[in-house]
Design a binder for these strands. Structure first.
Lengths: 184, 184
DNA sequence: TAAAACTGACGGAATATTCCGTCAGTTTTT
DNA sequence: AAAAACTGACGGAATATTCCGTCAGTTTTA
């Protein structure tokens, strides 16, 4: 409970002010929790960031894979999963900003990234199938997945920044672009 | 001279340790400059970041557009420019990391982004021409440009992270993917 | 009622920022 | 053209400020 409040407060403050400008005291205040309590749960500001990252990725994957069934054409599965990614971020702009800002941060170690990204390996199975069927350009499943993910990430950044309103047709066209980019 | 040393030192330290973990004293030491001198040129750590951003984007565009001529087919111009972007970042990994890390940072205001991105508007002319010729999907030139840029940015992050070695063929395939994604 | 969780005031370490003496280079005076 | 006066960039010691992390006291839980 308190732990989640702290993570939530940290997420909000880090995104809006930047890591360097946020103090533990501010986080405690935002979380409506004593400073000491923050230290009960986390050893440092950096650890808070790491735990936000892990928690966030876990919630993200829960959202994405909830209701996912490996039925229908490969293309429809592709669309389903990536659309979920897009919708998750559109509905959670703070989480998106956080995800983008810290993706390349030296605070997050390779191990943390590996753990946090575990769930996303399911995407690779999809891409592997596509490769078997010669649907995609000759790269590894992992690289194709990372490529699409990067594209979506970047696109969302400016889409949100420009407060572009994103309707179903926009998403459909965008997914088409993602598909076309890796199509054989 | 001293100013550049400070910016260079800041770039290196921010990328390797993260903004929050770097002190002005460290920057001064790395730049082989007195602490007071840092304050002669910059008002605060945040201002250093902003000036690095502006300087970096300016150097990047100088590199990209140097030798660029609006000759040849649209596709060859497309390839030329984006290949320059890719090569600039491959040759300047610190700058790339910095660029990626701070792209979504709250330290950089809209104004700074606008000023720093001014030079990149030339890309839009190219895309506008493509749109006139019905070569591209029906989006604005700006959006198409941002889409390609996002794609490249994201791709490079992973490529560098995985220490993937990137030869001419890889770049060519990648540019093909960029083209295919926006092609009508 | 004992244990666990929580709180926030506090001391001191870390850090940002200021301030001033120095001196290499430049201009003015004689 | 030599000497004197001036200038302001510079470094880093000194100061001001912030922030961390602890712990004694309080509240909640079981």
């Amino acid at each position: 409970m308190k732990r989640e409040q702290i993570l939530k407060a940290g997420l909000k403050l880090f995104v809006t002010h930047g890591l360097h400008a946020v103090t533990i005291a501010q986080i405690a205040a935002e979380a409506k929790v004593g400073i000491g309590t923050v230290y009960r749960y986390f050893g440092s500001k950096e650890e808070i960031v790491q735990q936000i990252w892990i928690t966030q990725k876990s919630e993200e994957s829960a959202y994405i894979f909830n209701k996912y069934t490996q039925q229908g054409s490969l293309r429809s599965q592709f669309d389903f999963l990536w659309e979920r990614v897009i919708r998750y971020f559109l509905e959670h702009p703070l989480e998106f900003q956080f995800s983008y800002q810290f993706a390349a941060s030296p605070i997050l170690t390779k191990e943390i990234h590996e753990v946090a990204m575990m769930d996303f390996l399911k995407f690779d199975e999809l891409y592997a199938m596509g490769l078997e069927q010669n649907l995609f350009k000759p790269l590894t499943a992992r690289r194709l997945r990372l490529f699409t993910f990067s594209t979506i990430n970047g696109w969302l950044l400016w889409a949100m920044d420009e407060k572009m309103d994103i309707d179903d047709a926009t998403i459909a066209l965008f997914l088409q672009m993602c598909w076309d980019s890796i199509k054989a």
